[in-house]
Amino acid sequence: MKLHTIHILVENRAGVLSRISGLFSRRGFNIESLAVGTCEEAGMSRMTIVVLGDDAQIEQVKKQLNKLIDVIKVSDITDQSTVARELALIKVAAEPGDTRAGVMQIANIFRAKIIDVGAKTVILEVTGDSEKIDALETLLRQYGIKEFVRTGKIALLRGQKGIKSMK
């Protein structure tokens, strides 16, 4: 069992997200994260799904996704050379003084931006791979995380290679 990153090119139509999420739930596949948005190809969206499973399960995931009429292309890019990012917003308890200075120092090290400052809290914005965000979350926990929200992972193949609609 390991985490796989699946990249899907889909028709940008009403209901396509529910077709895909429904497929995952009824076939018992475990979604870790899912990110979707429009892309450079007209009428299409790109989706990045992180799934936990063994090789046979991932094979089924890919085949079942391919059966959906609105799915144009499915690629498992786990073992390929990719860049991948997640974005997180973290609201941390940070009273003015030493605490706030400590939070800001950690933010600096992680190249996180402070995008909101309140009387008793600050909000950090950070991008990076999952491990980086996990590490930042762990460090900030001692100060008290009030709210934490993160997107799913998005990924692209490095260099010239790409995932295009032409099969």
């Binding site: 009403a14 209901g15 529910s18 077709r19 429904g22 009824r26 959906l68 009429i69 609105d70």
Partner: peptide
Amino acid sequence: ITGITMPITKHNYL
């Protein structure tokens, strides 16, 4: 009905 029949159709349209 498109929502209801999503898992039991090859495809559906509204």
